[in-house]
Design a protein around this nucleic acid. Structure first.
Lengths: 197, 197
DNA sequence: CCCGTTCGTGAACCACCGTTAACATCCCCG
DNA sequence: CGGGGATGTTAACGGTGGTTCACGAACGGG
């Protein structure tokens, strides 16, 4: 039971297996949904039988939980740090956030998909923890949007934030239709136009 | 085996049970995902035991299939008819499409959620049929966007269309935060700004 | 009034899948 | 060299859940 924190330094310490499994699982979960993917499927994807996974994860749910927690942490950490690293011009901060979200969505379409589809498959506590992180990330956006739109209240800016997420996170649906640079530029321009409307 | 077309006139002919089941199932599927919802759950939601559902549907998958087909048909039909009923000013057509999609998304957040989450839980043929309808609906948008952006190719406008869908379909995430009129106006304004960016 | 259709019930069946157990391998460290 | 931890394998267990079956009640028309 000394495994609670292994997740924190997992990818740094060990480049293999456990990480392979998480990556393969993310891909499969995104394609079919976590409930439709069997432990054997995940195992097969990394050249191993199903039960072997239990040498690396306590359960299938624990896999999903770690996946979603990592995503939420990366988004929150990346968002806050980039806003902090930008001057206090609201529009500059907004552009930074948009660029970050676009890059993330283009780099990890599978994670984006799993992130907002399989939250419901988590235990109550884990789901709550993920939601806490998500909420804090949304608040980063709401703060910036609040300075871009001083006339709007927080509720309005929350709707704005979710709308922009929806726009940018459409990458799984339009993957590979255009060269990445073009897609990134287009989505960023659309997101900025939407966020400032 | 004379049931292939019952779906077409189902809601018109019979206001009850079968429709109750579909509505309840849509709600439950949206909340937890179709795989996580048992036949007994759906039955209980309409005051009936699980197996009773098989008096109205051939299988659980058939339920989901009919649900997704109806959604896709409603969108395609509504989109094409409204565009046809609008003059040939591209911007007017675009605004009509946006208003239609916003209304649909605000009226049926559950259907929106199920629509792009549980497609993978369908048999190959049914999934293909739904995708055909979706594609045709996207093409309606792409055509209009093509006249708004004569400089862009179809691939670019497809990405645009998906981005706008993502924006508008964020309603399940921001449900009830603002009065409906406000949300509708905000989303429409954002969508138009994004689509014309 | 009675028969067939419709709609429902509870019990049982069966396949699938997450999980555990018992047993091999490999490899590094003392 | 020898033993123990990490990593896998196969077989088996057990619960869950979709589906079927045999049966009952309501009900409308000949």
């Amino acid at each position: 039971m000394t495994d609670t924190n292994t997740a924190l330094h997992a990818d740094a310490a060990r480049p293999s297996r456990r990480e392979q499994i998480l990556r393969a699982a993310a891909q499969l979960f995104a394609e079919r949904g976590s409930r439709a993917v069997g432990v054997d499927d995940v195992g097969a994807a990394v050249g191993v039988t199903g039960p072997a996974i239990y040498r690396h994860f306590a359960s299938k749910d624990a896999m999903l939980a770690e996946m979603l927690l990592r995503i939420s942490e990366r988004l929150l950490e990346g968002g806050t740090s980039r806003v902090a690293a930008t001057g206090d011009d609201p529009m500059a901060q907004l552009r930074t956030l948009i660029a970050f979200q676009v890059d993330f969505a283009l780099d990890n379409p599978a994670l984006i998909t799993v992130h907002d589809r399989d939250l419901g498959s988590l235990s109550a506590e884990e789901a709550a923890q993920v939601r806490r992180l998500q909420r804090r990330y949304v608040e980063v956006w709401v703060d910036v949007l609040g300075r871009v739109h001083p006339e709007s209240d927080a509720a309005t800016n929350r709707v704005r934030a979710h709308a922009v997420f929806g726009l940018v996170n459409s990458t799984p649906h339009s993957a590979g239709r255009l060269p990445r640079r073009r897609t990134a530029a287009l989505l960023a321009a659309m997101a900025e136009a939407a966020a400032t409307a």
